[in-house]
Design a protein around this nucleic acid. Structure first.
Length: 451
RNA sequence: GCGCGGAUGCCCGAGCGGCCUAAGGGAGCGGCCUGCAAAGCCGUGAUUCGCGGGUUCAAAUCCCGCUCCGCGCUCCA
């Protein structure tokens, strides 16, 4: 079984499943008020890789990722642009999924929306009030954090430490009993979206939706709750607080991934301020970002720069040309390497180690091919290909679509070469270069490739 | 202030007590192949892992101190 760093315990621990053979995981999804940024990209890629791996290793995975479609940020943007908040949410969500598709991120099994769960949230809030863990003020309903005995578990701090913090706490909710208490239900101001509740019309606070939805779709004591490091506090802590206050068993295991850094000058200059995933996919092969993420550990910070992306693009070129050579060799994978791959991945999702293994098999294939050991090459190739697939890297074994002019030039060059007219052949190659193409003279004849 | 995590070759980035005279990718250099290239292959590159102590037969890996850096304690993947 895989071991992962558990934020609650502060150490790497085996993932103990509630139901053997089945994994239930919840990934905090996007608030749909703008285009997805590269941080969202890392998030979805990391958990996509985990999910693919778990599935490959024989587990039945239920993957839930929510969409926060009602939130202050959505309301604010709608107001700024004089549009309907629902329009913002709907459009941004469509863009989100489109972007996910371009990065080859598998769709979740369930994508609950906050607006679909308002009634259930109201029920939970009611129960919390009844149990003495929540109270009503003039602007909303708050959770009384002091009723949660181990509040601060995920940050490894107690309530007093948290209260002494240097952060600026929001002034909203000055009627709160304690600065640490957080809002479960916000009463709406005129013109704002509103749902009915026993305490007054309003909308749910952000931390409530994930508790209700995860518990509803995955049940109490589900296996894995994930998200970015920035969600540890307050979001995840507050989700947990509600479940605990309500006497419910929450996630058994907490997994958080590190940040993407792009503050460096490198980024802003050479990437032209690329911050969102849409732009990144325009400028680079989207697989490059996946490879980049794969090559570092999910908990380490990664700096996304023009250089690192270009490195990945070059590595991808190597993988694609491998895939082309390997296309005709399909055989069976080598079980030894595969089990090595498995144990590497089970070690706190060591994707870098997995990529390592994959590249070694790539080199092995090429090497065996050079020495004409086709059978062994086939096994090595199949192994590398299988690893790539599990990691969600789709290699391109197809040749490119060659425009007629380019094809014609290649034909002319082949003729010149046959006549040993090297000057002519090289001149044609220069013409190809100008047209953005190159030609590789392989054993099976010339292969045109885009530069 | 409290808490969490970093510092590894030209760049990115693994490793977490002996298999490390430190993976893998990118870039460079030398060679093979090629008419010349490209692709591919082979070789080459840190005697050293932020600094200073310590533990150990053995440390990049553990402990103590220090210096820088990132992050959280407020909305955020």
């Amino acid at each position: 079984m895989i071991s992962l760093y558990d934020t609650a315990r502060g150490q790497v621990a085996p993932l103990k499943l509630r139901d053997p053979g089945r994994v239930s995981m919840y990934v905090c999804g996007p608030t749909v008020y703008g285009p997805p940024h590269i941080g969202h990209g890392r998030q979805t890629l990391v958990y996509d890789i985990l999910r693919r791996f778990l599935t490959w290793s024989g587990l039945e995975v239920t993957f839930v990722s929510n969409v926060t479609d009602i939130d202050d940020k959505i309301i604010n943007r709608a107001a700024d642009e004089d549009r309907e908040w629902t329009e913002i949410a709907t459009k941004c969500e469509a863009i989100w999924w489109k972007s996910m598709d371009s990065y080859n991120v598998l769709r979740p099994d369930h994508t609950p929306h906050a607006t679909e769960y308002v009634e259930e949230m109201v029920d939970l809030i009611g129960a919390l009030i009844a149990g003495g863990s929540a109270y009503v003020t003039t602007d909303g309903v708050y959770l009384r954090v002091s009723t949660v005995p181990d509040y601060g578990l995920l940050t490894n701090q107690n309530l007093d430490d948290l209260l002494e913090g240097g952060g600026e706490r929001s002034l909203v909710g000055t009627e709160k009993e304690s600065p640490a208490d957080f809002v479960l239900w916000k009463f709406s101001k005129p013109g704002e979206p509103a749902w009915p509740s026993p305490w007054g019309e309003g909308r749910p606070g952000w931390h409530t939706e994930c508790v209700v939805m995860s518990l509803d779709l995955l049940g109490e004591g589900f296996d894995l709750h994930t998200g970015g490091l920035d969600l540890v506090f307050p979001h995840h802590e507050n989700e947990r607080a509600q479940a605990v206050a309500n006497g419910q068993r929450f996630a058994r295991h907490w997994m958080h991934h590190g940040f993407v850094e792009l503050e460096g000058e490198k980024m802003s200059k050479s990437l032209g301020n690329v911050k969102n995933l849409l732009d990144l996919a325009q400028l680079y092969d989207p697989r490059a970002y996946r490879l980049l993420i794969l090559q570092s550990h999910y908990r380490s910070p990664i700096e996304v720069t023009d250089t690192s992306l270009n490195n990945a693009v070059a590595a991808l070129g190597r993988l694609d040309s491998f895939a082309r050579r390997a296309a005709a060799l399909a055989t069976e994978s080598d079980p030894t390497t595969l089990s090595e791959f498995r144990s590497v991945m089970e070690n706190d999702l060591d994707t870098a180690g997995a990529v390592d293994l994959m590249f070694r098999k790539v080199r092995e294939t090429n090497s065996l091919l050079d020495s004409k050991d086709i059978e062994a090459a086939g096994i090595a190739a199949a192994t590398a290909l299988e690893i790539a697939t599990v990691l969600g890297l789709e290699l391109n074994a197809e040749g490119e679509v060659v425009p007629e002019e380019v094809a014609a030039l290649v034909v002319r060059r082949t003729a010149a070469r046959a006549a040993k007219d090297w000057a002519e052949a090289d001149e044609i190659r220069d013409e190809l270069t100008t047209a953005g193409w190159t030609v590789e003279d392989g054993a099976q004849g010339p292969v045109p490739r885009r530069l």
